[in-house]
Design a protein around this nucleic acid. Structure first.
Length: 426
RNA sequence: GAGGCCAUGGCGAAAAGGCAAACGCGGCGGAUUGUGACUCCGCAAGUACCAGUUCGAGUCUGGUUGGUCUCCCCA
């Protein structure tokens, strides 16, 4: 009898968790500088929250949710995205009563029942930010800048920002009619996918990969914006220009969630199979009211961390990650083996990453293990050393060894590590 | 929801339906009771699962499971 992980999930193992931590730390640090505080909400919520928040007719709600009934006969759903839960929490915790705009970020797993492919999993992780309580276009721009900066600070090249305004629901409804009127005469010449898009989400037809040329004269949502939308969008662009954040205006950009208004944007990059969107977001001015709170405006993004990791890999970016061990204690003989526990404990309490053998292996194998451990130093402990209250310290790669008093070992190693670091930097 | 490709020790990778399933890397032991790395010898470890065809299946067929990639859609 054996078990396998569920389809579309991943075991993230030591060796790659370090890279995850690096990415997460980069996210946390940039959020701190932009004034965002971390929020941790439940991984499952009432199913109704996502139906209301994400939209009844979206693909996510219609066919991708992990929904189950709990023992109290309540319908629950593993969160497919982060915004709905954050907004629910904002309302429930009455953050609207706080004097300032609520600037929140989260990092965690999301769940969508889809067929896995390159850069797409059933359990995946997002880093997201939400700013709730202001319509200031400067916030839209700052959030776009934050995400852009995140990718840049990771060292990624070729990440671009696509920007659009999808207006208010009223503007979008009017544009939809205009677009349908344009598409209707050419319905027969559309591909099958586009025919179904016409019914479900006509704005997506313009995105069709099969035949782009035929839509050159299609109406643009940008031209359909009212004065207020126009002004907001113009100011977002101004802010981005002033901040030096590059972007591509893309009037055909549509997001897959219903709640977006005004600003919509995506981060794109090549290098993950057929997928080029690595993150996306926008403004959601009606969402808080939809979920039962005061009518507070919001703006945010969600970035796919697996996609970020895949990009790092495809661009060959390998950050310096700390070695697992500083010193490996090699024991010779039974007495030394018994003395090792206390020695390791002293070193570890003193702040040193110390490793040893637990398999009763011979000297030769212990030295090999020392090298695998990533330790800079090997400390050899045998009967001779024990009798003198000393230990032989040497570089793990060989060379001279020096006798060090057991009680001085921690400090000696610390000093050596320090000077080693200094040398590396000079 | 639809489709393509794939599945052999820990990793990589051979085996035209026919010896006991190569070989390389890595692991462990020994040569070499307390100082590895070179060398030599040895050991452990594998055909995803279930049926079928066949004298004989890792190899062919069907199914299952899983992986991977693509469409749809999305992070």
């Amino acid at each position: 009898m054996s078990f396998q992980k569920p389809p579309g999930t991943q075991d993230i193992m030591p060796g790659s968790t370090e890279l995850w931590q690096y990415v997460e730390n980069t996210a946390r640090d940039i959020c701190r500088r932009y004034g965002f505080g971390e929020i941790r909400t439940p991984i499952f919520e009432a199913t109704e929250l996502f139906k209301r928040g994400v939209g009844e007719t979206t693909d996510i709600v219609e066919k991708e949710m992990y929904t189950f009934e709990d023992r109290g006969k309540r319908s629950m759903t593993l969160r497919p995205e982060g915004t709905a839960g954050v907004v629910r929490s904002y309302v429930e915790n009455k953050l609207y009563g706080e004097p300032d705009v609520s600037k929140l970020y989260y990092i965690g797993p999301m769940f969508r029942y889809e067929r896995a492919q390159a850069g797409r999993y059933r359990q995946f992780h997002q880093f997201g930010v939400e700013a709730i309580g202001s319509v200031d276009p400067a916030l839209d721009a700052e959030i776009i800048a934050l995400g852009y900066g995140f990718y840049r600070e990771l060292g990624l090249q070729g990440v671009t920002v696509d920007l659009n305004s999808v207006g208010t629901p009223a503007v979008r409804a009017a544009f939809r009619e205009k677009l349908l009127a344009y598409l209707e005469p050419m319905r027969d010449s559309l591909c099958d996918d586009c025919k179904s898009r016409m019914a479900r989400n006509p704005l997506r037809v313009l995105d069709c990969k099969v035949d782009q040329d035929k839509f050159t004269n299609a109406p643009s949502i940008i031209d359909s914006l009212d004065e207020e939308c126009e002004a907001h969008f113009a100011r977002v662009r101004e802010c981005l220009d002033e901040m030096g954040i590059p972007y591509n205006l893309n009037s055909r950009l549509v997001r897959g969630l219903d709640y977006y208004t005004h600003t919509a944007f995506e981060y794109k990059a090549q290098g993950i199979g057929a997928i080029d969107t690595i993150g996306g977001g926008g403004r959601y001015n009606g969402l808080v009211a939809e979920i039962g709170g005061d009518d507070k405006p919001g703006v945010g993004f969600g970035l796919g961390l697996e996609r970020t990791l895949l990009l790092l890999e495809s661009q060959g970016i390998k950050p310096d990650l700390a070695a697992q061990a500083d010193v490996y204690v090699v024991t010779l003989g039974e007495r030394a083996e018994k003395a090792a526990s206390a020695l390791l404990q002293r070193l570890r309490v003193a702040g040193i990453a110390a490793e040893r053998d637990y398999l009763g292996r011979k000297t030769k194998a212990q030295f090999k293990a020392a090298e695998r451990s990533g330790a800079s130093f090997a400390a050899v402990l045998g009967d001779d050393e024990l009798d003198r209250g000393e230990i032989s310290l040497r570089s793990v790669t060989g060379g001279d060894q020096q006798a060090v008093k057991l009680e001085d070992l921690a400090n000696t190693i610390k000093n050596k590590l320090k000077s080693e670091k200094g040398n590396n930097h000079s």
